[in-house]
Design a protein around this nucleic acid. Structure first.
Length: 533
DNA sequence: TAGGTAATAT
DNA sequence: GATATTACCT
Protein backbone atom coordinates (compact mmCIF):
# COMPACT_ATOMS: atom_id res chain seq x y z
CA UNK A 1 0.00 0.00 0.00
CA UNK A 2 1.42 3.31 -0.95
CA UNK A 3 1.19 6.35 1.19
CA UNK A 4 -1.20 7.95 -1.19
CA UNK A 5 -3.45 4.99 -1.10
CA UNK A 6 -3.31 5.02 2.63
CA UNK A 7 -4.26 8.61 2.61
CA UNK A 8 -7.17 7.86 0.43
CA UNK A 9 -8.17 4.91 2.49
CA UNK A 10 -8.22 6.61 5.83
CA UNK A 11 -9.03 10.12 6.66
CA UNK A 12 -6.20 10.55 9.08
CA UNK A 13 -2.54 9.91 9.42
CA UNK A 14 -1.97 7.34 6.76
CA UNK A 15 -1.09 3.87 7.73
CA UNK A 16 2.26 2.93 6.34
CA UNK A 17 3.70 6.40 6.37
CA UNK A 18 7.22 6.23 7.65
CA UNK A 19 8.34 9.09 9.80
CA UNK A 20 11.72 9.93 11.17
CA UNK A 21 11.50 12.13 14.23
CA UNK A 22 14.62 13.97 15.35
CA UNK A 23 14.94 15.89 18.61
CA UNK A 24 17.73 16.14 21.15
CA UNK A 25 15.19 16.58 23.90
CA UNK A 26 14.20 13.06 24.90
CA UNK A 27 10.96 14.21 26.47
CA UNK A 28 9.90 16.08 23.42
CA UNK A 29 10.93 13.16 21.29
CA UNK A 30 8.85 10.77 23.33
CA UNK A 31 5.85 13.04 23.18
CA UNK A 32 6.25 13.43 19.47
CA UNK A 33 6.57 9.72 18.96
CA UNK A 34 3.54 9.07 21.09
CA UNK A 35 1.47 11.58 19.23
CA UNK A 36 2.54 10.21 15.90
CA UNK A 37 1.65 6.76 17.05
CA UNK A 38 -1.64 7.99 18.26
CA UNK A 39 -2.36 9.37 14.88
CA UNK A 40 -2.28 5.88 13.48
CA UNK A 41 -4.56 4.33 15.96
CA UNK A 42 -7.36 2.47 14.39
CA UNK A 43 -8.91 1.07 17.49
CA UNK A 44 -8.15 0.19 21.07
CA UNK A 45 -7.32 -3.42 20.42
CA UNK A 46 -5.04 -2.80 17.52
CA UNK A 47 -3.45 0.10 19.30
CA UNK A 48 -2.70 -1.97 22.32
CA UNK A 49 -1.29 -4.71 20.21
CA UNK A 50 0.91 -2.40 18.23
CA UNK A 51 2.06 -0.52 21.28
CA UNK A 52 2.99 -3.78 22.95
CA UNK A 53 4.97 -4.80 19.96
CA UNK A 54 6.75 -1.50 20.01
CA UNK A 55 7.70 -1.95 23.60
CA UNK A 56 8.92 -5.46 23.04
CA UNK A 57 10.63 -4.84 19.75
CA UNK A 58 14.17 -6.04 19.33
CA UNK A 59 15.06 -4.15 16.25
CA UNK A 60 13.23 -0.92 16.42
CA UNK A 61 14.31 0.43 13.06
CA UNK A 62 13.49 -2.69 11.11
CA UNK A 63 10.11 -2.82 12.75
CA UNK A 64 9.41 0.78 12.07
CA UNK A 65 10.42 0.56 8.48
CA UNK A 66 8.57 -2.66 7.94
CA UNK A 67 5.33 -1.58 9.51
CA UNK A 68 5.49 2.06 8.72
CA UNK A 69 5.89 3.41 12.15
CA UNK A 70 7.84 6.19 13.67
CA UNK A 71 11.57 6.10 13.93
CA UNK A 72 13.18 8.41 16.43
CA UNK A 73 16.63 9.65 17.15
CA UNK A 74 18.02 12.35 19.42
CA UNK A 75 20.95 13.13 17.20
CA UNK A 76 20.79 14.94 13.90
CA UNK A 77 23.88 13.20 12.64
CA UNK A 78 22.28 9.84 13.37
CA UNK A 79 19.23 10.97 11.49
CA UNK A 80 21.31 11.77 8.46
CA UNK A 81 22.99 8.40 8.59
CA UNK A 82 19.67 6.63 8.94
CA UNK A 83 18.31 8.49 5.99
CA UNK A 84 21.37 7.79 3.88
CA UNK A 85 21.39 4.13 4.76
CA UNK A 86 17.69 3.76 4.20
CA UNK A 87 17.00 5.80 1.20
CA UNK A 88 13.41 5.69 0.09
CA UNK A 89 12.43 4.07 3.35
CA UNK A 90 11.22 7.24 4.94
CA UNK A 91 8.40 9.41 3.81
CA UNK A 92 8.70 12.31 6.19
CA UNK A 93 11.15 13.89 8.61
CA UNK A 94 10.21 15.91 11.64
CA UNK A 95 13.18 17.65 13.09
CA UNK A 96 13.88 20.01 15.92
CA UNK A 97 15.66 23.19 14.97
CA UNK A 98 18.00 23.50 17.91
CA UNK A 99 20.25 20.51 18.25
CA UNK A 100 23.79 20.46 19.57
CA UNK A 101 25.39 18.21 16.99
CA UNK A 102 23.80 19.72 13.96
CA UNK A 103 21.63 22.67 13.25
CA UNK A 104 18.15 21.59 12.26
CA UNK A 105 18.42 23.80 9.22
CA UNK A 106 21.56 22.00 8.17
CA UNK A 107 19.73 18.72 8.48
CA UNK A 108 16.92 20.20 6.50
CA UNK A 109 19.31 21.19 3.78
CA UNK A 110 20.94 17.79 3.60
CA UNK A 111 17.65 16.00 3.45
CA UNK A 112 16.48 18.31 0.75
CA UNK A 113 19.57 17.75 -1.30
CA UNK A 114 20.01 14.05 -0.83
CA UNK A 115 16.59 12.59 -0.25
CA UNK A 116 14.14 15.23 -1.26
CA UNK A 117 11.84 14.28 1.56
CA UNK A 118 9.35 16.59 3.13
CA UNK A 119 10.76 18.00 6.34
CA UNK A 120 8.78 19.58 9.11
CA UNK A 121 10.68 21.86 11.42
CA UNK A 122 9.92 21.86 15.09
CA UNK A 123 10.94 24.64 17.41
CA UNK A 124 10.05 26.48 20.59
CA UNK A 125 10.97 29.69 18.84
CA UNK A 126 8.15 31.50 17.22
CA UNK A 127 10.42 34.15 15.84
CA UNK A 128 9.47 34.75 12.25
CA UNK A 129 13.12 34.77 11.37
CA UNK A 130 13.33 31.10 12.26
CA UNK A 131 10.19 30.33 10.40
CA UNK A 132 11.45 32.17 7.38
CA UNK A 133 14.77 30.43 7.59
CA UNK A 134 13.05 27.10 7.69
CA UNK A 135 10.93 27.94 4.73
CA UNK A 136 13.93 29.17 2.78
CA UNK A 137 15.76 25.96 3.50
CA UNK A 138 12.88 24.01 2.14
CA UNK A 139 10.86 23.08 5.17
CA UNK A 140 7.35 22.17 4.24
CA UNK A 141 6.02 23.19 7.62
CA UNK A 142 7.10 24.82 10.83
CA UNK A 143 5.51 23.64 14.05
CA UNK A 144 5.82 25.23 17.42
CA UNK A 145 6.42 23.29 20.60
CA UNK A 146 4.60 21.93 22.29
CA UNK A 147 3.27 20.23 19.22
CA UNK A 148 -0.35 19.21 19.26
CA UNK A 149 -1.85 16.14 17.80
CA UNK A 150 -4.18 18.22 15.67
CA UNK A 151 -1.16 19.55 13.88
CA UNK A 152 0.27 16.10 13.34
CA UNK A 153 -2.92 14.63 12.03
CA UNK A 154 -2.54 16.40 8.75
CA UNK A 155 1.15 16.21 8.14
CA UNK A 156 0.55 13.47 5.61
CA UNK A 157 -0.49 16.20 3.23
CA UNK A 158 3.15 17.19 2.90
CA UNK A 159 4.02 13.71 1.78
CA UNK A 160 1.32 13.76 -0.80
CA UNK A 161 2.30 17.18 -1.97
CA UNK A 162 5.94 16.28 -2.25
CA UNK A 163 5.03 13.15 -4.08
CA UNK A 164 3.05 15.15 -6.56
CA UNK A 165 5.91 17.52 -7.08
CA UNK A 166 8.29 14.66 -7.64
CA UNK A 167 5.88 13.16 -10.04
CA UNK A 168 5.62 16.27 -12.11
CA UNK A 169 9.33 16.73 -12.01
CA UNK A 170 9.88 13.20 -13.14
CA UNK A 171 7.41 13.55 -15.97
CA UNK A 172 8.96 16.74 -17.18
CA UNK A 173 12.55 15.60 -17.04
CA UNK A 174 11.64 12.07 -17.92
CA UNK A 175 14.85 11.11 -16.23
CA UNK A 176 16.08 9.44 -13.15
CA UNK A 177 14.72 10.92 -10.02
CA UNK A 178 17.18 11.80 -7.36
CA UNK A 179 18.01 9.35 -4.65
CA UNK A 180 16.71 6.39 -6.55
CA UNK A 181 19.96 4.86 -7.50
CA UNK A 182 21.49 1.55 -6.58
CA UNK A 183 19.76 -0.69 -4.12
CA UNK A 184 16.48 1.15 -4.07
CA UNK A 185 15.98 1.14 -7.76
CA UNK A 186 13.20 -1.40 -7.69
CA UNK A 187 10.98 0.54 -5.43
CA UNK A 188 11.86 3.77 -7.10
CA UNK A 189 11.09 2.35 -10.51
CA UNK A 190 7.86 0.89 -9.34
CA UNK A 191 6.86 4.16 -7.84
CA UNK A 192 7.81 6.00 -10.98
CA UNK A 193 5.86 3.53 -13.02
CA UNK A 194 2.88 4.04 -10.81
CA UNK A 195 3.25 7.73 -11.20
CA UNK A 196 3.46 7.51 -14.94
CA UNK A 197 0.46 5.27 -15.11
CA UNK A 198 -1.43 7.60 -12.91
CA UNK A 199 -0.39 10.45 -15.14
CA UNK A 200 -1.56 8.57 -18.19
CA UNK A 201 -4.89 7.94 -16.62
CA UNK A 202 -5.22 11.56 -15.78
CA UNK A 203 -4.32 12.57 -19.30
CA UNK A 204 -6.71 10.10 -20.76
CA UNK A 205 -9.42 11.34 -18.51
CA UNK A 206 -8.70 14.85 -19.57
CA UNK A 207 -8.70 13.86 -23.20
CA UNK A 208 -11.98 12.12 -22.76
CA UNK A 209 -13.35 15.22 -21.20
CA UNK A 210 -11.96 18.07 -23.22
CA UNK A 211 -9.43 17.23 -25.84
CA UNK A 212 -11.13 14.39 -27.55
CA UNK A 213 -10.48 14.42 -31.21
CA UNK A 214 -13.51 15.86 -32.90
CA UNK A 215 -15.28 13.65 -35.30
CA UNK A 216 -15.25 15.02 -38.78
CA UNK A 217 -18.57 15.30 -40.47
CA UNK A 218 -18.18 14.99 -44.16
CA UNK A 219 -20.73 17.45 -45.30
CA UNK A 220 -21.45 18.01 -48.91
CA UNK A 221 -19.28 21.05 -48.90
CA UNK A 222 -16.39 19.27 -47.35
CA UNK A 223 -16.90 16.41 -49.70
CA UNK A 224 -16.94 18.82 -52.59
CA UNK A 225 -13.64 20.05 -51.52
CA UNK A 226 -12.39 16.55 -51.27
CA UNK A 227 -13.55 15.84 -54.78
CA UNK A 228 -12.01 19.00 -56.03
CA UNK A 229 -8.72 18.00 -54.55
CA UNK A 230 -8.96 14.53 -56.00
CA UNK A 231 -9.70 16.06 -59.30
CA UNK A 232 -6.89 18.49 -59.02
CA UNK A 233 -4.22 15.89 -58.50
CA UNK A 234 -5.93 13.29 -60.59
CA UNK A 235 -7.40 10.10 -59.38
CA UNK A 236 -4.21 8.28 -60.15
CA UNK A 237 -2.27 10.52 -57.82
CA UNK A 238 -4.91 11.03 -55.22
CA UNK A 239 -3.31 10.17 -51.94
CA UNK A 240 -4.38 11.43 -48.57
CA UNK A 241 -1.62 13.90 -48.02
CA UNK A 242 -1.96 15.58 -51.37
CA UNK A 243 -5.68 15.79 -50.94
CA UNK A 244 -5.28 17.16 -47.49
CA UNK A 245 -2.87 19.81 -48.67
CA UNK A 246 -5.16 20.86 -51.45
CA UNK A 247 -8.21 20.91 -49.29
CA UNK A 248 -6.48 23.21 -46.89
CA UNK A 249 -8.99 22.71 -44.14
CA UNK A 250 -8.01 23.42 -40.61
CA UNK A 251 -8.31 20.61 -38.15
CA UNK A 252 -8.63 18.09 -40.90
CA UNK A 253 -6.02 15.41 -40.65
CA UNK A 254 -4.42 13.13 -43.12
CA UNK A 255 -6.13 10.29 -41.38
CA UNK A 256 -9.49 11.90 -41.91
CA UNK A 257 -8.81 12.23 -45.56
CA UNK A 258 -7.42 8.74 -45.79
CA UNK A 259 -10.53 7.42 -44.20
CA UNK A 260 -12.75 9.29 -46.57
CA UNK A 261 -10.66 8.22 -49.50
CA UNK A 262 -11.01 4.68 -48.34
CA UNK A 263 -14.73 5.08 -48.16
CA UNK A 264 -14.80 6.70 -51.53
CA UNK A 265 -12.82 3.93 -53.14
CA UNK A 266 -14.99 1.33 -51.56
CA UNK A 267 -18.01 3.05 -52.95
CA UNK A 268 -16.48 3.09 -56.36
CA UNK A 269 -15.63 -0.52 -56.16
CA UNK A 270 -19.02 -1.47 -54.96
CA UNK A 271 -20.97 0.29 -57.61
CA UNK A 272 -18.60 -0.80 -60.30
CA UNK A 273 -19.04 -4.39 -59.38
CA UNK A 274 -22.74 -3.96 -59.33
CA UNK A 275 -22.60 -2.18 -62.59
CA UNK A 276 -20.64 -4.99 -64.09
CA UNK A 277 -23.40 -7.35 -63.30
CA UNK A 278 -26.00 -5.06 -64.66
CA UNK A 279 -23.97 -4.33 -67.69
CA UNK A 280 -23.74 -7.99 -68.39
CA UNK A 281 -27.44 -8.31 -68.03
CA UNK A 282 -27.91 -5.33 -70.20
CA UNK A 283 -25.66 -6.68 -72.88
CA UNK A 284 -27.69 -9.80 -72.96
CA UNK A 285 -31.17 -8.47 -72.75
CA UNK A 286 -31.43 -4.91 -73.78
CA UNK A 287 -31.84 -2.92 -76.82
CA UNK A 288 -30.61 0.60 -76.96
CA UNK A 289 -31.95 3.87 -77.87
CA UNK A 290 -30.16 5.77 -80.47
CA UNK A 291 -30.21 9.36 -79.58
CA UNK A 292 -30.80 11.65 -82.44
CA UNK A 293 -29.45 14.88 -81.11
CA UNK A 294 -27.62 16.52 -78.35
CA UNK A 295 -30.38 18.97 -78.02
CA UNK A 296 -32.63 16.28 -76.87
CA UNK A 297 -30.38 15.54 -73.96
CA UNK A 298 -29.85 19.12 -73.18
CA UNK A 299 -33.47 19.66 -72.51
CA UNK A 300 -33.88 16.43 -70.73
CA UNK A 301 -34.63 17.66 -67.34
CA UNK A 302 -37.12 20.18 -68.47
CA UNK A 303 -39.33 17.73 -70.12
CA UNK A 304 -39.24 14.01 -70.48
CA UNK A 305 -37.67 12.95 -73.66
CA UNK A 306 -40.33 11.53 -75.83
CA UNK A 307 -39.07 8.11 -76.36
CA UNK A 308 -40.58 5.00 -77.56
CA UNK A 309 -38.81 2.87 -75.07
CA UNK A 310 -41.02 1.86 -72.26
CA UNK A 311 -37.91 1.13 -70.22
CA UNK A 312 -36.71 4.62 -70.50
CA UNK A 313 -40.10 6.01 -69.96
CA UNK A 314 -40.36 4.28 -66.68
CA UNK A 315 -37.07 5.70 -65.60
CA UNK A 316 -37.72 9.11 -66.88
CA UNK A 317 -40.70 9.36 -64.66
CA UNK A 318 -38.41 9.27 -61.72
CA UNK A 319 -36.34 12.13 -62.97
CA UNK A 320 -36.82 15.35 -61.22
CA UNK A 321 -36.59 18.84 -62.23
CA UNK A 322 -33.82 20.49 -60.36
CA UNK A 323 -34.11 24.06 -59.42
CA UNK A 324 -31.49 26.20 -60.98
CA UNK A 325 -30.29 27.36 -57.64
CA UNK A 326 -29.56 23.92 -56.47
CA UNK A 327 -25.90 23.97 -55.81
CA UNK A 328 -25.05 20.48 -54.90
CA UNK A 329 -26.28 17.10 -55.68
CA UNK A 330 -25.04 14.64 -53.18
CA UNK A 331 -21.96 12.67 -53.75
CA UNK A 332 -20.91 14.40 -56.90
CA UNK A 333 -21.86 17.94 -56.53
CA UNK A 334 -20.62 21.12 -58.06
CA UNK A 335 -17.03 20.28 -57.98
CA UNK A 336 -16.21 22.89 -60.50
CA UNK A 337 -16.99 25.55 -58.00
CA UNK A 338 -14.08 24.31 -56.06
CA UNK A 339 -11.70 24.45 -58.90
CA UNK A 340 -9.52 27.28 -59.95
CA UNK A 341 -11.47 29.47 -62.22
CA UNK A 342 -8.86 29.56 -64.86
CA UNK A 343 -8.80 25.89 -65.38
CA UNK A 344 -10.87 26.03 -68.48
CA UNK A 345 -8.90 28.91 -69.80
CA UNK A 346 -5.48 27.51 -69.53
CA UNK A 347 -5.33 25.77 -72.78
CA UNK A 348 -7.43 22.87 -71.88
CA UNK A 349 -5.65 21.83 -68.78
CA UNK A 350 -8.62 20.10 -67.34
CA UNK A 351 -9.21 18.28 -70.50
CA UNK A 352 -5.76 16.93 -70.55
CA UNK A 353 -4.70 16.54 -67.02
CA UNK A 354 -6.31 13.43 -65.78
CA UNK A 355 -6.78 10.20 -67.57
CA UNK A 356 -10.15 10.17 -69.08
CA UNK A 357 -12.57 8.15 -67.08
CA UNK A 358 -14.78 6.73 -69.72
CA UNK A 359 -18.28 7.89 -69.43
CA UNK A 360 -19.43 4.40 -69.69
CA UNK A 361 -17.87 3.78 -66.37
CA UNK A 362 -20.42 5.76 -64.57
CA UNK A 363 -23.05 3.26 -63.83
CA UNK A 364 -26.34 3.35 -62.20
CA UNK A 365 -27.64 0.37 -60.46
CA UNK A 366 -30.99 -0.56 -59.27
CA UNK A 367 -30.17 0.17 -55.68
CA UNK A 368 -30.23 3.88 -56.13
CA UNK A 369 -26.52 4.10 -56.01
CA UNK A 370 -24.45 5.80 -58.56
CA UNK A 371 -20.76 6.39 -58.37
CA UNK A 372 -18.14 7.09 -60.85
CA UNK A 373 -15.41 4.72 -61.62
CA UNK A 374 -12.20 5.91 -63.00
CA UNK A 375 -10.16 4.61 -65.84
CA UNK A 376 -7.11 3.49 -64.07
CA UNK A 377 -4.31 1.32 -65.17
CA UNK A 378 -3.93 0.08 -61.68
CA UNK A 379 -7.46 -0.04 -60.61
CA UNK A 380 -9.62 -3.03 -60.66
CA UNK A 381 -12.54 -0.70 -60.63
CA UNK A 382 -12.48 -0.18 -64.28
CA UNK A 383 -15.22 -1.81 -66.16
CA UNK A 384 -14.06 -2.86 -69.53
CA UNK A 385 -15.72 -0.59 -72.03
CA UNK A 386 -16.56 -3.52 -74.13
CA UNK A 387 -18.72 -4.81 -71.38
CA UNK A 388 -20.77 -1.73 -71.37
CA UNK A 389 -20.57 -0.16 -74.70
CA UNK A 390 -20.74 -3.17 -76.81
CA UNK A 391 -23.12 -2.43 -79.55
CA UNK A 392 -23.38 1.20 -78.68
CA UNK A 393 -22.96 3.86 -81.21
CA UNK A 394 -23.23 6.91 -79.05
CA UNK A 395 -19.57 7.13 -78.44
CA UNK A 396 -18.73 7.43 -82.03
CA UNK A 397 -21.85 9.02 -83.30
CA UNK A 398 -21.30 12.59 -84.38
CA UNK A 399 -24.79 13.41 -83.33
CA UNK A 400 -24.24 12.35 -79.78
CA UNK A 401 -21.72 14.30 -77.79
CA UNK A 402 -22.18 13.82 -74.09
CA UNK A 403 -18.81 15.34 -73.50
CA UNK A 404 -19.91 18.52 -75.08
CA UNK A 405 -22.85 18.77 -72.85
CA UNK A 406 -20.79 17.92 -69.82
CA UNK A 407 -18.17 20.41 -70.69
CA UNK A 408 -20.77 22.98 -71.33
CA UNK A 409 -22.06 22.50 -67.88
CA UNK A 410 -18.57 22.59 -66.58
CA UNK A 411 -18.16 25.90 -68.25
CA UNK A 412 -21.37 27.10 -66.70
CA UNK A 413 -20.34 26.06 -63.26
CA UNK A 414 -16.92 27.47 -63.53
CA UNK A 415 -18.17 30.74 -64.81
CA UNK A 416 -20.75 30.97 -62.15
CA UNK A 417 -18.28 31.03 -59.36
CA UNK A 418 -18.90 34.41 -57.91
CA UNK A 419 -16.25 36.74 -56.80
CA UNK A 420 -15.55 36.46 -53.18
CA UNK A 421 -18.70 37.46 -51.47
CA UNK A 422 -17.68 36.42 -48.06
CA UNK A 423 -15.23 37.52 -45.49
CA UNK A 424 -12.21 35.72 -46.75
CA UNK A 425 -10.50 35.15 -49.98
CA UNK A 426 -11.11 31.94 -51.77
CA UNK A 427 -8.38 29.44 -51.45
CA UNK A 428 -6.58 27.79 -54.27
CA UNK A 429 -9.54 25.63 -54.99
CA UNK A 430 -12.00 28.43 -55.00
CA UNK A 431 -13.34 27.71 -51.55
CA UNK A 432 -14.22 30.24 -49.07
CA UNK A 433 -13.50 29.08 -45.66
CA UNK A 434 -13.52 31.13 -42.58
CA UNK A 435 -14.65 31.24 -39.05
CA UNK A 436 -12.29 28.59 -37.88
CA UNK A 437 -12.42 27.98 -34.22
CA UNK A 438 -10.87 25.32 -32.14
CA UNK A 439 -13.07 22.55 -33.27
CA UNK A 440 -15.40 24.04 -35.75
CA UNK A 441 -14.69 24.81 -39.31
CA UNK A 442 -17.12 26.85 -41.23
CA UNK A 443 -17.59 26.80 -44.89
CA UNK A 444 -19.56 29.10 -46.97
CA UNK A 445 -21.03 27.88 -50.12
CA UNK A 446 -20.23 30.62 -52.49
CA UNK A 447 -21.35 29.12 -55.73
CA UNK A 448 -24.74 29.10 -57.21
CA UNK A 449 -25.66 27.13 -60.16
CA UNK A 450 -27.01 29.56 -62.64
CA UNK A 451 -28.30 29.47 -66.10
CA UNK A 452 -26.02 28.57 -68.88
CA UNK A 453 -24.39 31.10 -70.95
CA UNK A 454 -25.26 30.22 -74.46
CA UNK A 455 -22.30 32.02 -75.83
CA UNK A 456 -19.94 30.25 -73.56
CA UNK A 457 -21.49 26.95 -74.24
CA UNK A 458 -21.30 27.52 -77.92
CA UNK A 459 -17.75 28.58 -77.58
CA UNK A 460 -16.88 25.46 -75.77
CA UNK A 461 -18.77 23.40 -78.19
CA UNK A 462 -16.85 24.91 -80.99
CA UNK A 463 -13.71 24.20 -79.15
CA UNK A 464 -14.71 20.70 -78.48
CA UNK A 465 -15.58 20.01 -82.00
CA UNK A 466 -11.99 20.52 -82.85
CA UNK A 467 -10.82 18.16 -80.26
CA UNK A 468 -11.10 14.51 -79.92
CA UNK A 469 -14.38 13.71 -78.40
CA UNK A 470 -12.58 11.33 -76.13
CA UNK A 471 -10.22 13.92 -74.85
CA UNK A 472 -9.07 13.28 -71.33
CA UNK A 473 -11.50 14.12 -68.66
CA UNK A 474 -10.92 14.94 -65.09
CA UNK A 475 -12.55 13.29 -62.20
CA UNK A 476 -14.33 16.47 -61.49
CA UNK A 477 -15.81 16.48 -64.91
CA UNK A 478 -16.99 13.00 -64.48
CA UNK A 479 -18.42 13.78 -61.14
CA UNK A 480 -20.00 16.91 -62.35
CA UNK A 481 -21.41 15.06 -65.22
CA UNK A 482 -23.34 13.05 -62.73
CA UNK A 483 -24.72 16.09 -61.08
CA UNK A 484 -28.37 16.11 -60.48
CA UNK A 485 -28.71 19.48 -62.02
CA UNK A 486 -29.86 18.00 -65.21
CA UNK A 487 -30.25 14.36 -64.72
CA UNK A 488 -28.99 14.22 -68.21
CA UNK A 489 -26.19 11.90 -67.76
CA UNK A 490 -28.11 9.41 -65.84
CA UNK A 491 -30.64 9.18 -68.54
CA UNK A 492 -27.92 8.82 -71.03
CA UNK A 493 -26.28 6.10 -69.07
CA UNK A 494 -29.47 4.31 -68.56
CA UNK A 495 -29.93 4.35 -72.23
CA UNK A 496 -26.44 3.34 -72.94
CA UNK A 497 -26.45 0.55 -70.54
CA UNK A 498 -29.87 -0.50 -71.43
CA UNK A 499 -31.11 -0.87 -67.95
CA UNK A 500 -33.69 1.42 -66.67
CA UNK A 501 -34.73 -0.31 -63.58
CA UNK A 502 -38.10 0.79 -62.46
CA UNK A 503 -36.87 1.24 -58.96
CA UNK A 504 -33.99 3.43 -59.94
CA UNK A 505 -34.57 6.78 -58.41
CA UNK A 506 -33.50 10.06 -59.74
CA UNK A 507 -29.87 10.80 -59.76
CA UNK A 508 -30.49 13.19 -57.01
CA UNK A 509 -31.80 10.41 -54.88
CA UNK A 510 -28.93 8.25 -55.78
CA UNK A 511 -26.18 10.63 -55.03
CA UNK A 512 -27.91 11.96 -52.00
CA UNK A 513 -27.97 8.59 -50.45
CA UNK A 514 -24.27 8.76 -49.99
CA UNK A 515 -24.42 11.79 -47.85
CA UNK A 516 -27.62 11.21 -46.02
CA UNK A 517 -26.15 10.05 -42.79
CA UNK A 518 -23.46 12.61 -42.84
CA UNK A 519 -26.00 15.26 -43.36
CA UNK A 520 -28.06 14.07 -40.52
CA UNK A 521 -25.10 14.41 -38.25
CA UNK A 522 -24.20 17.88 -39.30
CA UNK A 523 -26.14 20.87 -38.34
CA UNK A 524 -26.23 23.01 -41.33
CA UNK A 525 -28.70 24.77 -43.39
CA UNK A 526 -28.61 23.68 -46.93
CA UNK A 527 -26.96 26.31 -48.96
CA UNK A 528 -25.75 28.34 -46.10
CA UNK A 529 -23.46 27.13 -43.42
CA UNK A 530 -22.08 23.90 -42.34
CA UNK A 531 -19.83 23.03 -39.56
CA UNK A 532 -17.44 20.30 -38.99
CA UNK A 533 -17.42 19.23 -35.45
C1' DT B 1 7.02 9.21 -43.15
C1' DA B 2 3.16 7.97 -45.62
C1' DG B 3 -0.23 4.81 -47.86
C1' DG B 4 -3.35 0.96 -47.57
C1' DT B 5 -6.11 -2.08 -45.09
C1' DA B 6 -8.53 -4.06 -41.39
C1' DA B 7 -10.11 -3.78 -36.75
C1' DT B 8 -12.41 -1.10 -33.57
C1' DA B 9 -15.23 2.61 -31.82
C1' DT B 10 -18.99 5.64 -32.25
C1' DG C 1 -25.46 -0.85 -40.00
C1' DA C 2 -22.75 2.92 -41.53
C1' DT C 3 -18.75 5.20 -41.09
C1' DA C 4 -15.10 7.64 -38.61
C1' DT C 5 -11.04 6.54 -36.06
C1' DT C 6 -7.26 3.85 -34.90
C1' DA C 7 -3.88 0.23 -35.27
C1' DC C 8 -0.92 -2.20 -37.86
C1' DC C 9 1.65 -3.54 -41.69
C1' DT C 10 4.15 -2.39 -45.87
Amino acid sequence: MTVEQGVQAVDQFPVGMRVLAVDDDQTCLLILETLLHRCQYHGPLLSLLLFSVILLRNDALDFDLAFGFVTTTDKAQTAVELLRENKNKFDLVISDVDMPDMDGFKLLELVGLEMDLPVIMLSAHSDPKYVMKGVKHGACDYLLKPVRIEELKNIWQHVVRKSKLKKMKGIVTNGESEGNSDQNGVRANRKRKDQLEEKDEEEQEQERGNDKKPRVIWTRELHNKFLAAVDHVGIMNAVPKKILDLMNVDNLTRENVASHLQKFRLALKKITNEAKQQANMAAANSHFMQMSSLKGFGSFHHSPIPLGSSQFHGGAATMRHYPSNRTFAGMFPHVSSSLPRNLHNDGGHMLQGTPFPPLENLHINSNNKAFPSFASQQSSLLVAPSMVLEGHQQSTSPSFSPHLEINKRLEDWSNNIPQSNVHSEPDALGWNMFGNSTNQTYFCRDTEFGSSSAAQADSLQMKQQHENIFSPMTVAQLLRSSSANEGLFMGQQKLENGFMASDAGSLDDIVNSMMTQEQSQAEFSEGDWVWVA
